[in-house]
Structure formats: structure tokens, C-alpha cells
């Protein structure tokens, strides 16, 4: 693993009486795709939300060597990391292009860069170019997921947190989405991927962590985890 672009130490997330994440450590190296696996309710999404400041957390989080705990989400994204949230959460009443425009806000006044990124997104996801004027809420699930990813990429992040991109999509569409994730890595973006689809995730990821009940119960390279029973055990709850 190279020098970590993201490192998380003793991260805890608590919602009232519920302790969603119990002091986990994890690191993501520059240029890696790291998968964070686990069953529903294991604390994966809470971990991602805590990293981008959308969930209250304890512990240390560093991005590119600098601590980022306590920094507001809107300021964090300007530093170069962002989250594509679970369930896509595109702005359904806005057009496709308006959604993408919003994604470019962290670039500030760099209009040229914003235009360039918009063209890049349209090249990456041609369907979005076709539908640029369409109200995003009327897109299909797969198209909405592409839009959600493209919207995150508009700000040229160096680290992308991707939460359950395959959720609720038809298998054929899931394949396409994972292909596109694999392509992203080629463009030099580091990705922390949260998924329930273990097999597909381990195919694209370099390494993976397995979470259960708010703790990390296993970690290793994708090959190690694919060939062991650790992941299954985590899912079945006897890790």
C-alpha cells in the first residue's frame, strides 16, 4: 500500500443510544480501490458519512496527511474528497445538466475546468448527454446512479466515497456500473467503495475491509478475502 490518502483512527459514530461504528481504523492508499463490505446495518454508510462530516463522529480522520475532523462538509468537498450517497439522491426536480452544474461548485470560479469536466462526464456517460435537459427524477434507476457518480466526479475529487452504487439496480445495469467504477481508477481517482455485492466488489477492489456490528472484523487484499471464508462469516455473524 502506498502512502494513505485517507486514514481513519478509532472512528466512532453514535446516534443517541445506538453505537453505529465502534472505534474502527482504516486506511486508503493513493490510487487504490478499497471496498468496505458487510451486512446491512454493519456501520458502513455511517463510516462514510462520518468521513465527509455528515454524521457526528469521534476519533481522527486525515485526508492527504491533514486532519479533517470537524470540518464542515461543504468545506471538505473543496479539499478534494466527496461522497456519492446511498440511494443516489440526485436532485429529482432539477435537470440532468443542473445536477452536474451543482457538482462543479467546489471548483469555484474555474469556469473552463467546469466546462471541460462537463464534457468529460458526457463522454463517460453518453446517456447523460442525450438527456441533459431532462428532469432527473424521470431517469431510470441506472441512469440516476450514473448521474449521481458523474455529479460527484464533476468536482474532480481525488478521493471518491461510493456508497452502494448497485443498490436496487438490475444485474445488467450493475455490471455496467462496476465497469465504469473500474474505468475511473484508470483516471487516477482513489475510491472507497461500500457494497453489499461482495463478489463484484472484490473483483474491482485492491483491498477490502469487512465490517460487522460497527467493527472491522476482517481485512486483506481482494484475493485473500475472495479465497477465505472470512467474508461469509462476517455476513453470517460469527466472525
Amino acid at each position: 500500500m502506498q502512502a494513505p490518502i485517507l486514514s481513519v483512527e478509532k472512528l466512532g459514530v453514535r446516534y443517541g443510544a445506538v453505537e453505529a461504528v465502534r472505534g474502527i481504523d482504516l486506511a486508503v492508499g493513493q490510487g487504490e480501490i478499497v471496498a468496505l463490505l458487510g451486512a446491512n446495518g454493519a456501520g458502513k454508510s455511517s463510516t462514510l458519512n462520518a468521513i465527509v462530516g455528515l454524521a457526528p463522529s469521534t476519533g481522527q480522520i486525515s485526508f492527504e496527511g491533514a486532519p479533517i475532523s470537524g470540518i464542515a462538509t461543504e468545506a471538505l468537498v473543496r479539499k478534494g474528497l466527496t461522497l456519492t450517497p446511498e440511494g443516489r439522491r440526485i436532485f429529482g426536480s432539477l435537470t440532468v445538466e443542473e445536477n452536474l452544474t451543482l457538482g462543479g461548485i467546489p471548483l469555484g470560479k474555474a469556469q473552463e475546468k467546469r466546462r471541460e469536466n462537463l464534457e468529460r462526464m458526457f463522454a463517460l456517460f453518453p446517456i447523460l448527454a442525450e438527456r441533459r435537459g431532462q428532469i432527473a427524477g424521470t431517469l431510470s434507476g441506472g441512469q440516476q446512479q450514473m448521474l449521481a457518480i458523474a455529479r460527484s466526479l464533476m468536482m474532480s475529487p481525488r478521493l471518491l466515497l461510493l456508497d452502494e452504487p448497485s443498490l436496487g439496480l438490475a444485474p445488467r445495469i450493475v455490471d455496467t456500473i462496476f465497469e465504469q467504477v473500474a474505468e475511473l481508477r484508470a483516471s487516477g481517482i482513489t475510491i472507497l467503495l461500500v457494497e453489499q455485492n461482495v463478489a463484484m466488489s472484490l473483483e474491482v477492489a485492491d483491498r477490502a475491509y469487512v465490517m460487522a456490528s460497527g467493527e472491522i472484523v476482517a481485512q486483506g487484499t481482494a484475493e485473500e478475502l475472495s479465497s477465505s471464508h472470512l467474508v461469509e462469516q462476517a455476513y453470517l455473524g460469527h466472525a
Partner: peptide, 15 residues
């Protein structure tokens, strides 16, 4: 308009 629809995600856009 985005913030009116989903404020958390709007903040993710740097709003």
C-alpha cells in the same frame, strides 16, 4: 433549489 430538495447532498456539492 437543490438545497430545498436535499440539503445534505447539496452540502456534498460544496453548497
Amino acid at each position: 433549489r437543490a438545497a430545498a430538495e436535499d440539503f445534505s447532498v447539496a452540502r456534498l456539492m460544496g453548497v
